[in-house]
Amino acid sequence: MAEPSTLRDATAPVEPRQGGAFARWLDRRGWSDILIGGPYIWLLLLFLVPFLIVVAMSVATKTSTAPPISWGGEVPLLNWEPYQRVLSDGLYLRAFLTSVMNAGIAMILCLFIGYPMALGLVRVAPSWRNILLMLVILPFWTSFLLRVYAWMGLMGRNSWFNGMLTDAWNFLVPIDWAVRSIPMMNSNFAVVLVMVYTYLPFMILPLYASLERLDTTLDEAAMDLGSRPARVFWDVTLPQSVPGIIAGGMLVFIPAAGELVIPSLVGNASSPMIGRLISDEFSMARDWPMASAIAVMLLLLMVVPTMLYSHYQAKAGGSK
């Protein structure tokens, strides 16, 4: 092989390339400053400031000016009345309760439907798995609004689905209880049903992720040691999937509790959920302080599940 002629000349003096002040700043720390600073400033301005405005609004006083609030002047600087009303008026407390109940029931139903599905996805032949996973994710990419809408079509009084259920009902119960159709729309039942439908992928995917990681030799070891399959599930599979259950549960509960679209379309207007209440106070009653106070209370309510979620996320990340 030829002697590489150009390779032996490593004697050029070490001199840093000179650049302008800007180039030097960019090299030293400017680049990281730009990377951090860009999104940071954006989020401060368009997320943190608006959020702080909500907090400030919640202690403002409602006026009939535009914008319909004021702090100080002839009204007190801090007005705690919205909070007092949230905590004393049964309407608001009921709304909180309805939200937590609906979101909680939806979460539990999602768990009971989603867990066997996730486990099924892990156990089916690998050639099927990718297709089935895609089928779980597919609804997630389609419009949320249209998925809610699809159920409106099914639950309506004249739909084939309602008709089928009505026939089944009339067949099973005494003749006196017969109905012309089942009143499904505009009820908490409808809200929970649609929530389960729209949020189920959020439950299945983290469960699938945590179940897929499990070492199947553990199952075999437990069976080898004399456990029956059901026992193995309780002793081995279930305990190890707790992080997935918590993650999925919170991913369903948190958005469901603050949901606005579903209760607005299929919910019962006389027992509103909290999201709808915020929207109504804001747009209909033009009571910004009240809407803001409820919003702040809702966020406080979300703190616990969120902490729970991030705690288990950190744990799951650490054990990988």
């Binding site: 368009l46 400031v49 608006p50 959020f51 405005i53 909500v54 609004m57 914008p67 958005p255 509790a257 603050g258 949901e259 606005l260 999201g275 915020i278 929207s279 804001f282 910004w288 809407a291 803001s292 919003a295 809702l298 966020l299 979300m302």
Partner: peptide
């Protein structure tokens, strides 16, 4: 919750 993001953006 989206509704809070919504009203906070609007008020902003």
């Amino acid at each position: 919750p989206e509704v809070i993001t919504g009203i906070s953006s609007l008020m902003f």
